[in-house]
Design a protein around this nucleic acid. Structure first.
Lengths: 72, 72
DNA sequence: TATTAAAGAGCCGTATAATGCACTTTGAAG
DNA sequence: CTTCAAAGTGCATTATACGGCTCTTTAATA
């Protein structure tokens, strides 16, 4: 899942839940500015910030195997 | 997936592929120090750093829905 | 025990994420 | 057009991730 896709998924999830950026900021404990930057594609959030946001939205990070590993 | 679990998964994946931290650093473009800190649980990597590491290990970030969303 | 590879950790400068505040832009409803 | 809520942006400060260098620790093997 690339960056834009992550953003899109999170943004849509927030909107489905009818939560504003401001509310998300308050509930998650992440600064409003940080959320705005992230959703507008400007940021490179830390894992912790991402997890705080996801938790409020009822989501979590998981890891998936892709096909190509170290090209050996 | 919580922090420790992510670390554990990534570390194990690296070991399964028989890649050293040093090689992972070189191939991924992430600093060795950063990888060491991350794997020893000291860090809070940015999403970009995480993605660089995962790509080399043949993995990627994905988002999963959990049960509880905003407790409304 | 000595050697060596891999991993962990201290020190520290640089880059940038996180944040607040104020202002602007956008879009919907009246 | 006006109003209002939500989202986006500029600027500045603080916190911290990134990374190199060096040294230590750990574990495996000779």
């Amino acid at each position: 899942m690339h960056f834009e896709e992550l953003i899109k998924t999170i943004k849509e999830r927030r909107q489905v839940l009818q939560v504003t950026q401001e509310t998300l900021a308050e509930v998650s404990g992440v600064g409003l500015r940080t959320i705005k930057q992230f959703e507008s594609g400007k940021g490179n959030p830390t894992l912790l910030t991402l997890q705080k946001i996801l938790e409020v939205l009822g989501m979590e990070v998981s890891l998936k195997l892709t096909n190509v590993s170290l090209n050996k």
